[in-house]
Nucleic acid binder design. Structure first.
Lengths: 104, 104
DNA sequence: AATTTATGCAACTTTTTGGTTGCGTAATAA
DNA sequence: TTATTACGCAACCAAAAAGTTGCATAAATT
């Protein structure tokens, strides 16, 4: 997941598809300054990570934003942040208790 | 950022440091099945991404969790999710309007 | 003082990744 | 029908990443 979004080109594509409009491979490669094949590869990686979905429309291959994995990534980051927060709290209360014990 | 968390080893280290305890390089390499040097490199990458902070304690080099960039990543994902949501809403209201116009 | 422990630096090897080129094919348009 | 357009597949290339090894150094132990 993070690896898939780690590449700037892929992140740009993903970001662009977040407006909900599915786009064909050629459409997406028009703005990217690289070959259609390169874009195709990136799309496959994004698809492999579940960040994007593919469906054919006539002869065109359309890629669409896929929110599930994004949600999962957010949940993970929230969970990590939560662990960090509670660790901070534990440290804080520990220091406070220490002060209480040491003051009289 | 995403690139830094994209590597499984680095994600594991980052995840582990989320408990708030800074750890030395050797401590961190004990659990990883690879050389200390490899772990060092990964830590440098994490540090470069601002996900982790380094400070020396005697001769030991301790790495600690750093929440700022994590927060930023969460904000970005939230923003993307927000764009997607509002795109969905627009599509929904469009369909509803279309129905309203077409029904009588 | 001698030894161990924790690290840094640098060179090197091996995979992986990002990207291109060339060719073949199927659907669309002229 | 003949181009044209939108793809897929496969081979290839170059650069970056992941990891190792060897050596040097400085702090902590004994």
């Amino acid at each position: 997941m993070f690896a898939a979004l780690g590449d700037p080109t892929r992140l740009a594509i993903f970001d662009r598809l977040a407006d909900g409009r599915p786009r064909s491979i050629s459409t997406l490669s028009d703005d990217a300054d690289m070959t259609r094949q390169a874009v195709t590869k990136h799309l496959r990686v994004l698809e492999g990570a579940g960040l994007v979905q593919n469906h054919k429309v006539g002869r065109e291959s359309h890629y669409a934003f896929c929110p599930e994995q994004l949600a999962q990534a957010r949940e993970y980051l929230d969970q990590v942040a939560g662990r960090w927060e509670s660790a901070l709290m534990r440290l804080k209360t520990f220091v406070e208790e220490d002060n209480t014990l040491g003051s009289p």
